[in-house]
């Protein structure tokens, strides 16, 4: 696990951030820490200040999702699966999923407080970047 995380940190450092976490321009949030993003995606926290946050995941096993889970959430697929099985018993569901990066971006543009990861090349002036990895 540490090797994978170090690998992503190395790649990000040498080649620049591959992915950006974006939020609507209207949202009163300008940056989030990795810990805050992790807590939001694990549904432990649901807001930042007064801003309610809706996390979005990409469906399936896309490389960006795997990179996000390893580099930001800090949990591999097995551990995350165990976590969500336990959360199912507690009555908590994982973040909603979107079929593509384009739909994540469109969702973020239209729903205030939603956040999601897209390739950094897609993060234009229509959205706000709050974290890069």
């Amino acid at each position: 696990m540490k090797t994978i995380i170090l690998f992503f940190i190395f790649v990000s450092t040498v080649f620049g951030a591959q992915y950006s976490i974006i939020i609507s321009k209207k949202a009163a949030v300008s940056a989030l820490s990795a810990d805050q993003i992790r807590d939001i995606y694990l549904q432990k926290r649901h807001s930042v200040g007064d801003q309610k946050i809706i996390p979005l995941n990409l469906v399936g096993q896309d490389p960006s999702r795997i990179a996000f889970e390893n580099a930001v959430i800090g949990m591999g697929r097995d551990r995350l699966n165990a976590y969500w099985v336990k959360q199912h018993f507690q009555g908590n569901s994982p973040p909603i999923t979107q079929p593509s990066h384009e739909s994540i971006k469109a969702f973020v543009q239209n729903v205030e407080g939603s956040i999601g990861y897209v390739p950094s090349s897609m993060a234009d002036a229509s959205v706000k970047v709050i974290y890069e990895f």
Partner: peptide, 16 residues
Amino acid sequence: LGHGVHVNDYLNVGGY
């Protein structure tokens, strides 16, 4: 398996 059935936002069902 283990994640329940997501019917809609109002209803998820499961069991064990």
